[in-house]
């Protein structure tokens, strides 16, 4: 468990160093995810070894957004008259984005004859 966490942190650190070193537009953890993925492809045993810890961590992923969410509440009253328009823009665009994304996926899958599973 400790070694598993240390592995994840090491990849995050590697990602941060890469992101800053090469001045990439992606945050360190996202690069760390890509590096860990590539490492697992080369060395499949790693994925099997740390899977128990990552399953637990990802099973509680929602929890990790709570502190940032609480910070948001302090800003909500600032929007005043723009609040309703912002709500419509955010809810509306999220509905549109999920609809367009999912329909495009299914449409292309049928077009290219990729199997449904």
């Amino acid at each position: 468990m400790i070694i598993h966490l240390a592995t994840l942190l090491a990849f995050q650190l590697l990602g941060e160093v890469t992101s800053r070193g090469l001045d990439l537009p992606l945050p360190g953890p996202v690069i760390g995810m890509a590096l860990l993925f590539v490492t697992c492809v080369i060395w499949p045993r790693l994925a099997k070894t740390i899977a128990p810890t990552t399953t637990v961590l990802l099973g509680h992923l929602s929890l990790l957004f709570v502190p940032a969410g609480v910070g948001v509440v302090g800003h909500l009253d600032k929007f005043g008259s723009d609040g309703a328009a912002l709500g419509v823009a955010i809810i509306g665009s999220t509905v549109v984005a999920i609809t367009v994304g999912a329909l495009t996926f299914v449409g292309l899958r049928k077009l290219t004859g990729t199997s449904h599973d």
Binding site: M33, I50, A51, T54
Partner: peptide
């Protein structure tokens, strides 16, 4: 923990 959790997304991705 958001950082290591983001890194951890590589595992289901690989699976």
């Amino acid at each position: 923990m958001l950082g290591p959790a983001t890194v951890a997304l590589a595992i289901p991705l690989y699976a």
